[in-house]
Design a protein around this nucleic acid. Structure first.
Lengths: 341, 341
DNA sequence: TTGAAAGCGCTAACAT
DNA sequence: ATGTTAGCGCTTTCAA
C-alpha cells in the first residue's frame, strides 16, 4: 500500500462527518453546506488528499488509460506520433500505455490481449507490416472498446482512422521529381498489404500518368528498408538506362539509397535525385539533406487521441470518421533541377 | 464497464459454488478439491475469464505499473532505452506509463505528481538538462516508492542507478583521436550540472593528460545541440590553429558539426576528425558515417527495470546499487588516421 | 472442503 | 444538510 496515503475516511474522521459527505463535498454536490465544503477543502489541501484512481476505476469501470500499439518505438515517425499522443492524452486527463509489436503479428496479437485485460478505455493502433488477419482487432470492437487506427490502418474494419494523404503526398513527390526534369523515376515501394504502401504507389503512378510519363513495371521495386536498399540500389545504378529520380517509400530507405548511389560513384542530386517520405530529423542531418514528404506525425498523434477520447466520452453512435492530415513536400538538397529554367 | 467481462461471481453461479471457492481454486489454494479446481479451470478457459486487474490493485495496493520520465521520446537514445524498459517490463508482468518532461523542470515536477497519484509501483527517471532542485524526487522516496535513475542521474540522492561509464567512454573517444594523430582536440561539452556532462569532460581531460597533450580551456566549449553547433563550429574553423579533432558530447551535435565543417570548406575526416557519443542509427546514415561511443541504451533500459522490479518485489533494505554499463568506441568514417603508421 | 463476511477507497441511491 | 448502506471484483480470515 502506498505509504501514508490519505483516504476519504481519514478526512471524514478528522472532521467528524461521514465519508459520503466528504465525497459529495469534493464533487460539488449541491446539498452540502458551504461551511462543510470549505472545511473539507481545507483539510484536503492540508493533508494533500488525492483520490485513489484505482478505487475510482473500480467504481466507474473506466481506467482513464489509453493503450497504444506501434510497430516500433525506436523509429522517428512513430516516436513523433507517440509524442503527440502523450501530450494530448495527459492534457485530457488520460494516461498512456505503450506496446511495441516489433513488426511481429504474434506480438501484436499479444499486445491487444494485454491491453484488453488491462482494461484500457480505448486503443490506438498502427499495424505491423505483416498483419493480414484482423481478428484480434475485431475482438477489441466486440469488447466495446473504442479503437482508432493511425497511419497504418486496417481497411477491412469499420473504425475511426487518422491517416495522411499518402496518395497525394506521393503524387507531390513524383510531381516534384518530374518538374525538376527527371525522366526515369523509380519507386522503392512499401508492402502492398498496407494501405500506405498501396496509396503511395498509386500516387506515384498517377503523377506519371498525369504528366504523360511512360510507366515501366520495372521501375516499381519492393524495397522499404536500409538492408534492401543496399542490395537493390546497386543493380539500379548498373542499368543501361539509369534512373535519374528515386522516390522511396520512407526516409531511411531514401537515405541508404543516397549513400549507396554515392558509393557507386554517382552524385546525388546531380546524377540522381532522391525523395523520401516522412521528413523527420533524419532528413536534416544527411548529406545532402533529404527532400521528403512531411507527414506531421505529432499532429497525427494528437488527432488520433482526440478522436479516441471523443469516442470514449461521448458514446455517440456516429459513423466512423476518417481524419486526413495533409502532407507537404519539403524540398531539400537531394533533389535538384537538372534543367535550367 | 467492460462489456461482457466475466467475473468470478459468474463462474461461481454457473458452478453452484461460492465466489471465494472460485478464488481459492484459481489461486491453487491447498484445501480445494481437485474436482472443483478442475471444473473451475475448465469454465475459466471456456469463458475466457481474466481477473480484473483493477480489483486486484485495489486489494493489493499494487498496480503492476512502472512510471517512466524521460526528457524526450523523439530521441534516439531515449527511445532505445524505452524499448528496453518496455520489453523487460512486459516480460515481467508490468506495464509502463511514460511521461516526457521535454527538458522542462516544471513538466518534470508535474510528471512526478502524475505518476505518484497514479499509484505506480516504481519510477524510472532520466532528469532534464535544467533540473537543479530535487525535492520532487525526494517526495517519491518519502512515499516509499522505489526510484531508479538512469543515464542522467541525480547524484545528490541515494537511489539505485544505471549509468554508462561516461568518463571511460569519453576517455576512449579522445584516446582514439589522439591515436590517429590529432594534436588539437576540442570538446563540445554538455551541461555541467549533469553528471554525464561532467564525466565526459573529465574523460576528455584525463585522456589528454594521460597522453601528455596540452590542455587548453579554450578547447572546452559548452555546446550540445545542433543549433549551438551551427553557431559555434564556424568560429572554431576560423581559428588560427584549427582543431584537428572534435569530441562532441552527443551524436546530433557531432553530425551537425560535421555538416558545418563541410560547409566551411573542410573535409571530415581529412582535416578534422569527429567523434560523437551514443552511436545510434544516426551514426550509420550520415556522410561520412560517424565514429561514436556506443552507449547500449536498450541494455540500460533493461537493467533499470530489473533493478526497479527487484526493489518493488523484494523489499530488501539493501544499500543502493549503481550498475555501470560498459561503453564501446565504434570507429566509423568520421575519424581517420592522419599519420601513416 | 466449502462458504459467509469483511474490506480495499470511492460513489450514489436511499434514508433521515 | 448529512448519514447509512450497498456495491464495483477480488482475496482472505474465520466459521461451518
Amino acid at each position: 500500500m502506498y505509504k501514508g496515503q490519505v483516504t476519504i475516511k481519514d478526512i471524514a474522521k478528522e472532521l467528524g462527518i461521514s465519508p459520503s459527505t466528504v465525497s459529495k463535498a469534493l464533487n460539488g454536490h449541491p446539498d452540502i453546506s458551504q461551511s462543510t465544503k470549505k472545511a473539507v477543502r481545507e483539510l484536503v489541501e492540508k493533508w494533500n488528499y488525492k483520490p485513489d484512481p484505482i478505487a475510482l476505476s473500480l467504481k466507474s469501470g473506466l481506467t482513464k488509460i489509453i493503450g497504444v500499439i506501434v510497430p516500433e518505438i525506436v523509429h522517428y515517425f512513430f516516436s513523433t506520433v507517440i509524442s503527440g499522443i502523450e501530450d494530448l492524452a495527459y492534457d485530457s486527463g488520460y494516461h498512456v500505455m505503450f506496446c511495441q509489436s516489433n513488426e511481429s503479428y504474434e506480438r501484436e496479437v499479444k499486445a491487444v490481449q494485454t491491453l484488453l485485460s488491462s482494461r484500457v478505455d480505448g486503443i490506438l493502433v498502427s499495424v505491423t507490416k505483416v498483419t493480414n488477419d484482423f481478428n484480434h482487432f475485431r475482438k477489441i470492437q466486440e469488447s466495446g472498446i473504442p479503437l482508432v487506427f493511425f497511419d497504418r490502418i486496417c481497411s477491412e474494419l469499420d473504425t475511426d482512422r487518422v491517416i495522411v494523404d499518402d496518395e497525394e503526398g506521393a503524387f507531390d513527390a513524383v510531381k516534384h521529381l518530374i518538374t525538376i526534369g527527371c525522366k526515369n523515376i523509380v519507386h522503392l515501394s512499401g508492402p502492398q498489404n498496407l494501405q500506405i504502401g498501396k496509396n503511395r504507389k498509386d500516387g506515384y503512378l498517377r503523377a506519371l500518368k498525369h504528366y504523360h510519363q511512360p510507366i515501366d513495371d520495372q521501375n516499381i521495386i519492393r524495397c522499404d528498408t536500409q538492408e534492401e536498399a543496399r542490395i537493390i540500389v546497386p543493380d539500379l545504378m548498373k542499368r543501361a538506362i539509369r534512373p535519374d529520380g528515386i522516390f522511396a517509400v520512407n526516409d531511411l530507405t531514401a537515405v541508404e539509397t543516397m549513400n549507396v548511389i554515392r558509393e557507386c560513384g554517382f552524385n546525388v542530386p546531380k546524377d540522381v535525385s532522391v525523395v523520401g517520405f516522412t521528413s523527420g530529423m533524419i532528413s536534416d542531418i544527411t548529406f545532402p539533406t533529404l527532400s521528403s514528404v512531411e507527414q506531421h506525425g505529432y499532429m497525427i498523434g494528437k488527432e488520433a487521441v482526440k478522436l479516441l477520447i471523443d469516442r470514449i466520452e461521448k458514446k455517440h453512435n456516429l459513423p466512423s470518421q476518417t481524419i486526413v492530415i495533409k502532407t507537404e513536400m519539403v524540398i531539400k538538397g537531394s533533389s535538384k533541377s537538372v534543367i535550367s529554367i
